[in-house]
């Protein structure tokens, strides 16, 4: 049907409750070259497998949090608030 995601604050909800923030991408150095900056902006690993990614509980507490999900099954391994 869809899949479920657990908000670290609110608990388990359907995925439609959340906004997807994309895979976690390492930030470039403070003075990136044009190529480094564009790589950060546009290029993605897009793995078929475990992916660390950002989610926002748009229709709930509105917190941003991290999740690790298997993109081949949509099974979510863990969720955590950043810095926690």
């Amino acid at each position: 049907m869809s899949f479920l995601l657990t908000c670290p604050n609110c608990g388990e909800r359907e995925v439609t409750d959340f906004a997807f923030g994309g895979e976690v991408v390492p930030r470039p150095s403070s003075k990136p070259s044009e190529r480094e900056l564009n790589t950060y902006n546009y290029f993605r690993r897009n793995v078929a497998g475990l992916q660390r990614e950002w989610w926002n509980h748009r229709s709930g507490c509105r917190a941003w949090f991290l999740a690790e999900r298997d993109t081949t099954t949509n099974e979510v391994r863990w969720v955590a608030l950043p810095g926690a």
């Binding site: 994309g22 895979e23 290029f43 993605r44 690993r45 897009n46 793995v47 078929a48 993109t71």
Partner: peptide, 18 residues
């Protein structure tokens, strides 16, 4: 949809999400 996985085998990064 699988082009990222094949490209990564060749060491090519793509600006693609599936």
């Amino acid at each position: 949809g699988w082009s990222s996985t094949i490209a990564s085998m060749a060491g090519v990064e793509l600006p693609i999400t599936t």
